[in-house]
Nucleic acid binder design. Sequence first.
DNA 1: CGGAATTGGTGTATCGATACACTAGCCCAG
DNA 2: CTGGGCTAGTGTATCGATACACCAATTCCG
Lengths: 352, 352
Amino acid sequence: MAKTTIADVARLAHVSVSSVSNLLNGRSQRMRPATRKRIQDAIETLGYSPSFAARQLKTGYSPFIGLIVPSVADPFFGSFARYVEEAASEKGYQVLLGNSERDSERERNYAEMLWSSGVRGIIFGSSLVKFNHLEHLYQEGMHFVSFYRSAHSGDQFIADSIGVDNIQATRLLTKHLLALGHRRIGFVSGPTDMICRLDRLEGYYKTLEESDISIDQQLVWEEASGDTGSTSFIELGKQGAHYLLSLPEPPSAIIAINDMHAFGVYAGARDLGVNVPDDLSVAGVDDIMLSAVSVTPLTTIKQPIRDIARLSVERIIDRLENDRGQEPVHLMLPSTLIVRESTARYRGRSAG
Amino acid sequence: MAKTTIADVARLAHVSVSSVSNLLNGRSQRMRPATRKRIQDAIETLGYSPSFAARQLKTGYSPFIGLIVPSVADPFFGSFARYVEEAASEKGYQVLLGNSERDSERERNYAEMLWSSGVRGIIFGSSLVKFNHLEHLYQEGMHFVSFYRSAHSGDQFIADSIGVDNIQATRLLTKHLLALGHRRIGFVSGPTDMICRLDRLEGYYKTLEESDISIDQQLVWEEASGDTGSTSFIELGKQGAHYLLSLPEPPSAIIAINDMHAFGVYAGARDLGVNVPDDLSVAGVDDIMLSAVSVTPLTTIKQPIRDIARLSVERIIDRLENDRGQEPVHLMLPSTLIVRESTARYRGRSAG
DNA sequence: CGGAATTGGTGTATCGATACACTAGCCCAG
DNA sequence: CTGGGCTAGTGTATCGATACACCAATTCCG
């Protein structure tokens, strides 16, 4: 229970607290080597480490950054969180985790808790379409970095963003499927309440248009019910597959909004006796670890998630440590198509 | 940038800071309703929220709990983290995340960082076999709850634990496979540096012994190389499957230390043209979300992970808020066998 | 050799919230 | 009319670290 303080160290080293503080804060050139050594030894023997709370109170500086993702139970965001944490700890920061479940009310509560905790920077693993619920914190001095950048410009709200071109992502997938001969390509989206989802949908629409394929709204499955958040991605993918494959003219290929949904599509197809990839090509986005080794390895878009995590952390720390009110930064990293076995050449109407 | 303080509220409400503090700390009976209302209004209009750092400095109370898991990129620990976070936030606590990568040095660094941050309670998502590297923090007053309890008694170190009976887990699986007629049952473990792994291995050994089946050490694959931590579980499972299936007398069933390893075993079997479940039964432990919907749904052990998370949080908060030096608490929750399609009756030597 | 400049420190107000110790004013009993 | 007990507050030392302002002793230099 013995909480060692700076005063204990000073006493043991026969110096003032100021000197200890000076050493701790890199002003050690104002000190004879012998004195420095005495202080360092005292710190060592007492096992002293400064109280972050006291330091924060005095300096306003907090060694925490917030990370808000829809859910770390999702492997994609789990990986993202792991990389964010890795990068942050290398820079001496710790990560406070929050799961928003894509609910703006929860997101707001978190952000406010974080503000109270002295946190001045938050990384959003995924962005709700609207950001207004956080604007008041931004006014007070909170910094935000969001994972995705809306390609729809005109955000009323200023945050840095680092992410991938989601329009490009589904464009690559759509082109890939078109090249394989598919013409009826379904899209399993789930709720379109996040920017990345709107963009992915847009990439799909645009590419079809450019190829003069008429868009059939029936082929786009957007939502199960109003039941946002609580239903797992896998379950949603399954529901989407059930719907699309039960259409009078079912698609011969399905793009899922992400890999977890794609696995749900696998399951849904299996339920209906539809074989992947023989009867149905399936593609996702994210390239989570399991995608490479699932029994039918999944064609997907690889996102440079580790780079995104590291850049996000760097960006937020830069804002925290030397914000000079720069313009918002928007980075867009390339994503790449990874073709595996879940997509195959169109074989005509395989079953009727 | 305007940081509202308790003094601002006091000024606006025409009361002393003491009164505001009294209201904030549940001493509101010492106050006329009208006064209380004035203060509440002032808090509202200023959007005031107290500084946790200042509060912590004065009271020693910290609203954070630490969570250290091997890696949140692992879906099992991702889910666990999500539930821990959920339970914590309901109680007004926030979660500081750390990924140990099963490295005791990293674990120690985290724990010390957390100590500096004023955190006095840490939940370990999984326990290394030895805990000595944390003992000094325990002496100073840190509280620990660990996910697994060693059934090997005689821990020199005192922490609460909440978990499942890992011996029972693999016992259920082994019995299940024996009942299906399997006699050569392989075990893919990976490094046995964590308590839960030793226990799972033990359950396997004991059950075989009880059934008078001689133990063939060749059938137990423990480690790839010294390369702890960095290799993914899937990759390890794959390596294990390659090894086991290349034996002169390969097993007809494989138990994997967890579901991620089991998926690796799927992949490894596929590489060698071995069909699951026809030629090889595979079972895991954890029941992660994907296990139910993978193309061959996985037989596994379901752990009551949400309950474990909630109980861990309750335990640690109880220690934080009213520790009276009680004896360590050890809870063991039941786990259940879930039979899916990855395990099948032994068919004799199907190939080879 | 005297004054300026440098070296090697130290004293202390301050950050924001808390809670103990205190009190002004009022009521009522004796 | 005095004093004990209550209500509805308030004053302020304190938590631990920081950093500005300050200072004593030494060194430098013309």
